[in-house]
Amino acid sequence: MNDVPERWTQASVYPDMWADPGEDPRDNEGPGPDGELETLRSVLRDFRLTLEMKCQGLDPEQLALRSVPPSTMSLLGLVRHLAEVERDWRNWVVPGEPEARLYGARDADFDGAEGSRALVDGAFADLAREQAATDAVLEGFSDLGTRVGEDRNSVRELWIHRIEEYARHCGHADLLRERVDGRVGQ
């Protein structure tokens, strides 16, 4: 007996996919959106949905399951981390004192990701709130070339960095989910 789950998928049309095309909420059919900003929004939306899909159907203990020692990475830790990242990107743009970290000192987003319903519910609420707040700030700039914040980053750069962050962590989420219950797919 071993603790490695058997690999599986719910997809039946393409067995290497997470979900069959007709059941996948991400925008994968037809031509892509018109325009740069609409493309950035669409790609970010799809990565956010991917993370959400990778977490669905798991209980708090499964969401908090760490990958492999000494890593502290878990799906719940990723949710908390991305909430923290959304706040951090917004802090780069909004003038004045930055908002405090959500979970405390460096790596507390991962270290404090324990399997309780209250922590899970709080993490997903934090993520939704921070995403909406950062989206609202960036939507205030119609010109993606606008330089913002102390570092004078372009709004375009901030959109792309957010996409990059979600893309990297969705790759982690693929492996974490497979480790939790064996479910595979893009």
Score class of each variant (00 low, 15 high):
5 P>G: 06
5 P>Q: 10
6 E>A: 11
7 R>T: 11
10 Q>K: 13
10 Q>T: 11
11 A>H: 14
12 S>Y: 14
12 S>P: 04
13 V>L: 05
18 W>M: 02
21 P>V: 01
22 G>Y: 10
26 R>E: 01
33 P>F: 05
35 G>E: 09
36 E>I: 07
36 E>K: 15
38 E>A: 08
38 E>M: 06
39 T>C: 01
39 T>S: 04
40 L>I: 03
42 S>E: 11
46 D>R: 07
47 F>E: 05
48 R>V: 01
49 L>N: 02
52 E>I: 05
52 E>T: 10
52 E>F: 10
54 K>I: 00
58 L>F: 13
58 L>H: 13
58 L>N: 09
59 D>F: 09
62 Q>F: 09
64 A>C: 05
65 L>N: 03
65 L>T: 10
67 S>W: 13
72 T>K: 13
72 T>M: 04
72 T>C: 06
73 M>K: 15
74 S>T: 13
74 S>C: 06
77 G>M: 03
80 R>L: 02
82 L>V: 01
83 A>W: 14
84 E>N: 09
85 V>D: 00
91 N>G: 10
92 W>H: 08
95 P>R: 14
96 G>S: 11
97 E>H: 15
98 P>V: 04
100 A>Q: 11
103 Y>K: 13
104 G>E: 10
105 A>H: 15
106 R>S: 07
107 D>M: 09
107 D>Y: 15
109 D>E: 13
112 G>A: 07
112 G>H: 14
112 G>C: 07
113 A>I: 06
113 A>Y: 13
116 S>D: 12
116 S>Q: 12
116 S>T: 15
117 R>D: 08
119 L>K: 15
121 D>N: 12
124 F>Y: 14
127 L>C: 07
127 L>V: 05
129 R>A: 02
129 R>K: 12
131 Q>L: 05
131 Q>G: 02
133 A>Q: 15
135 D>I: 08
137 V>K: 01
138 L>A: 02
138 L>G: 03
142 S>H: 15
143 D>P: 04
145 G>L: 04
145 G>M: 07
146 T>L: 02
147 R>S: 05
147 R>T: 09
150 E>H: 14
152 R>P: 03
152 R>Q: 12
153 N>C: 06
153 N>E: 10
154 S>E: 02
154 S>I: 00
155 V>M: 03
156 R>C: 01
159 W>K: 00
160 I>G: 00
160 I>V: 10
161 H>W: 13
161 H>E: 06
162 R>N: 06
163 I>E: 01
167 A>I: 02
169 H>P: 00
169 H>Q: 06
170 C>R: 02
171 G>D: 11
173 A>K: 14
175 L>C: 07
177 R>M: 04
178 E>T: 12
179 R>D: 08
179 R>M: 03
180 V>Q: 04
182 G>S: 07
183 R>C: 03
